[in-house]
């Protein structure tokens, strides 16, 4: 097995696995971001009559996490010193009811519009104030990066398949005489292809280990590798790979490697 061929197998796999881990990391960042802003944001509801969580649940197509009542007394107390007695008495009778609504999932800008419409159609609903638009912009940016990384990952799979299958075809061409002699003696194509299967196994494992090692290295040295702002964002996002994800990276590497070899083997078998 030449070192040259070993690396021509491993390198595309490593590049593909890194793009996969980037995709996983971004997905994790988005999930963490969603959780964070889900905890931070609230939708403020203003109603003319008291309202319950059940009424809200029935009126909208989103999963309600909770509905908190904002204390009218507290609001009135805050305003007490700023208005005259007459105005205060009027406020007491006219002041609407305030609530903060939280959802179980993070809504996008389009679903937020829909939510607002549904809330306003509930009887007694006077006004609905959604949260800052900044969150939505950041979220959209994250989603964009996620789709870019997913596209990149898909391209990398194609690139890897192309490079590896070319290498295997080259190997078959170089070893055609050996395969022919083995075939003349009753050996199967699979028997003749043992070296390339061994290469697929070793390079698949090597690529998986390199990428997993790379991920751990990056995790341990975030401050050294990234700018302080990005390092903070990554640390806050808590991108930790579970053992299952680590194993899945190695398995994907082996799967792609073997699938390509077997694909080419099948092609040669029916030639």
């Amino acid at each position: 097995m030449s070192l040259n061929r070993f690396f021509s197998f491993s390198l595309p796999l490593i590049i593909m696995l890194f793009s996969f881990s980037i995709y996983i990391s971004i997905s994790k960042m988005i999930t963490t971001y969603e959780t964070t802003i889900n905890n931070d944001y609230s939708i403020v509801l203003v109603t003319t009559t008291p309202i319950t969580q059940d009424v809200i649940k029935k009126g909208i197509s989103f999963n309600v996490k909770n509905l908190k009542t904002l204390s009218r007394e507290q609001i009135l107390a805050d305003l007490r010193d700023d208005v005259t007695d007459g105005s205060f008495a009027l406020l007491q009778t006219k002041l609407p009811y305030f609530y903060t609504l939280s959802l179980q999932e993070f809504p996008t800008s389009s679903s937020l519009e829909k939510l607002k419409k549904e809330l306003l159609s509930i009887q007694g609903m006077k006004s609905v104030e959604t949260f800052s638009k900044d969150h939505d912009n950041v979220y959209s940016l994250f989603l964009f990066i996620k789709s870019v990384s997913a596209t990149m990952f898909a391209f990398m799979i194609l690139f890897t398949l192309f490079i590896i299958s070319n290498q295997i075809n080259l190997w078959f061409y170089e070893h055609s005489e050996r395969l022919h002699i083995i075939n003349l003696h009753g050996g199967s194509l699979l028997y003749g292809a043992k070296p390339i299967l061994k290469l697929a196994l070793l390079s698949g494992l090597f690529a998986g280990i390199v990428v997993v090692g790379g991920i751990f290295y990056v995790q341990q040295n975030i401050d050294l590798i990234f700018s302080p702002e990005l390092a903070q964002l990554i640390t806050q996002s808590n991108i930790v790979y579970t053992p299952i994800e680590v194993v899945s990276i190695v398995l994907i590497s082996l799967f792609i490697s073997f699938a390509t070899v077997f694909g080419v083997l099948i092609k040669h078998r029916f030639k």
Binding site: E177, I181, N183, L184, H185, G186
Partner: peptide, 21 residues
């Protein structure tokens, strides 16, 4: 079946057909 048959035959060629690797 061809593979089985060939496994039980010894073949010699003019150009030897030894595997060079």
């Amino acid at each position: 079946k061809i593979r089985e048959l060939r496994k039980n035959i010894g073949i010699i060629f003019q150009d030897y057909k030894l595997i060079k690797e």
